[in-house]
Amino acid sequence: MTDQLLYATETALNGLMTGVMYSLVALGFVLIYKSSGVFNYAQGVLALFAALTLVGIQKGQVPFAHLINAMTGGHLESFPWQVPALLAILLTAGVMVIMAIIIEKLVLKHLVNQAPIILFMATIGLAYFLEGFGDVMWGADIKTLDVGLPQGINETIETVTGDLFGYGFFIDNLDLVATLVAVLLVTALTIFSQYSKQGRALRAVADDHQAALSVGISLRFIWILVWSIAGFVALVAGIMWGSKSGVQFSLSLIALKALPVLMLGGFTSIPGAIVGGLIIGMGEKLFEFWIGPLIGGATENWFAYVLALIFLVFRPQGLFGEKIIERV
């Protein structure tokens, strides 16, 4: 193999790994969209909030410390303990469930039978609220997240490829873990939504509220369930992104990258979210590698959106989306 081809292969592999990260965020969108027909603008912020909460709990931060200090003139900062990673993750998952219940009670409950656009607007409001709430609760500084996931170059891969091609590939361990987690998550979610009682109820609610009520499905229970699952997926995405690039408020912007991913994969398909993420991750890296130098670089910022636009023209439902059936 030529050097050029080797570099390209390495770039493609790394692109795939970044793609997995995109997919993790996109998954959360698909879940809520599939089960309630709502595009949840707040999904990215949900991931940010989950990551903030996780770091906060792990490091024993006092929630609302700034607010409390400002009001009482005290100097609270952190509790004198550290929480083990696994326990902190479980506690954060609990917080996400409580969040789901609060969202249902305060927002969704009042919007039964409303048009999807109204619910979409509500999630935009929710996104801004959550971002501010996360800020007040845990502070706006950039935090490092370490839950003990392996990081850095995978030496086995480097040695093996080095022996084979005379050039060792650089693959990050964290990306490998993310891939594994994504595979597990998708398998579990697919089985759940296709074959379980609640999965069927979930799809029913997405389709028709009235009909769902008439077969004995409690909309409120399903919504809490969906938002809990979405919160959990957000937590996973938050852990991965947070471990990779630190927990900072720009994390919520990564959610925007999930949009072209979904246009590619289809808003209603869990496998679509994965494949879409992979195509965009790899596509933008390879494009930057080959075409980038010819046109002055920085193509990664826009490549995904252009690809999504092209898809919108030729296949609006995405690769795996449900075909749009309309009887006239």
Binding site: S196, A201, A204, A206, D208, Q210, A212, I217, L225, I325
Partner: peptide, 28 residues
């Protein structure tokens, strides 16, 4: 009021939701 995106079989299966007993955990 049917679930347009689901198959006929799945639609009818939703009718039995009230009769299904398995809990969330065992289902999942």
């Amino acid at each position: 009021a049917l679930f347009d995106g689901m198959s006929v079989l799945d639609n009818i299966m939703t009718g039995r939701l009230t009769l299904m007993k398995s809990g969330l955990l065992s289902q999942a």
